[in-house]
């Protein structure tokens, strides 16, 4: 199974999510809730698809729905073995 560095994943998500909502990267921290950024379930699927393409992996469709912020999402990926 492929594994990635936590900083690498965090950096990608920060850049992508900031781009997604047209905010500076500084506005997206580990503790910024996805709800605050205005994501809905459709957005979650689109972001998951981009992540899969960027990292050439497959993630569970509920990855975003079951995590409230980037910190818990990265921990989730760590638990699933994608982050070393």
């Amino acid at each position: 199974m492929k594994t990635f560095d936590a900083a690498q994943v965090q950096s990608w998500f920060t850049r992508y999510l900031a781009d997604f909502v047209d905010l500076p990267e500084s506005a997206v921290t580990l503790d910024t809730t996805f709800a605050k950024l205005g994501f809905d379930s459709v957005d979650s699927v689109i972001i998951s698809g981009a992540f899969e393409e960027a990292f050439d992996v497959e993630v569970d469709a509920t990855l975003f729905l079951r995590n409230d912020d980037l910190r818990s999402l990265i921990e989730d990926l760590r638990a699933s073995g994608l982050i070393a």
């Binding site: 999510l17 997604f20 699927v45 698809g49 981009a50 393409e53 469709a61």
Partner: peptide
């Protein structure tokens, strides 16, 4: 529909390397 979106999103990111918005 969600499976469809995921496939579309993968293609978009592959071609544009930026967020679909």
């Amino acid at each position: 529909g969600l499976d469809q979106l995921r496939v579309f999103s993968q293609e978009y990111f592959r071609l544009r390397n930026c967020a679909f918005k």
